[in-house]
Amino acid sequence: MVSTALQPVTLSEFMQLHNIEESPAWELLNGQVLQKPMPTFYHSLLQKYLVRAIDNANSVYEAFPELRCILSQNSVVPDITIIHHSRIPLGNQPIQGAPDWIIEILSIDQSVTKLISKIQACLAEGTQLGWLIDIQEEVIMVFVPNQPLLLARADMALTVLDEIALQLTPNQVFGWLKR
């Protein structure tokens, strides 16, 4: 990630910047302006298959890649944002508030600490579930409010939102990369 601000920036100041929607997107996290790294092929492939799997579960939730969410003090663009149908904006607007479920896919040049911080910021504002996928280690870190971190590996059933009829394991997820 690239950081541009030496002094903390407020959410209002960040939202006035002209380049935040450039590709890759810019985020504001804890007063720091950060640009997301360009995704790798494996990153994009996991994003594609996860969005498809979540949307094919035919629930009241929908998955979106790279959708901006405006929190109380931060502006984040999760790799995958899952939100209830009732929260989908009517116009071409960002999501107001934290996603219901956030999925981040760790890229080689990303900071695990910054991604965990992003997930924790979302959990503090109402996110019900967070995944941090580490392709190199073949582990999915599962974050649930007020519960210890779960390191899901191999054939462990992954936690999903209650209203989503989706059964996945890390082996299935990482299997998508071995086509």
Rank of each mutant, 00 (worst) to 15 (best):
I103Q: 00
P89R: 01
H43S: 11
T40S: 15
V2A: 12
L177V: 07
R68T: 11
C69N: 07
S12I: 12
G97C: 04
I83Y: 02
S111K: 06
Y61C: 08
L177D: 07
V2N: 15
S117Y: 05
E104P: 04
D162K: 12
G130S: 03
P89Q: 01
P39M: 04
N146M: 13
P8R: 14
A165C: 14
L11D: 02
L11W: 02
H85D: 08
Q7H: 12
I108G: 14
T159K: 15
V112H: 13
N19R: 08
A165G: 10
G31D: 05
S86F: 06
I108E: 15
Q7W: 08
T81I: 00
F14D: 00
D79K: 00
A152W: 00
I54F: 06
H85V: 10
L17I: 07
W26V: 00
L6Q: 13
M1R: 09
I164M: 04
D162L: 10
V142W: 01
A5I: 04
I116K: 12
E13N: 01
L34T: 03
Q73A: 14
I140L: 02
Q172N: 09
Y49I: 04
V76M: 11
P78T: 00
A63G: 05
L6R: 12
Q35P: 00
T40L: 05
V142K: 04
E21L: 04
M156Y: 08
S86P: 03
S44T: 10
Q120E: 15
C69F: 04
K178F: 12
I108Y: 14
W101L: 06
L67Y: 05
V2I: 15
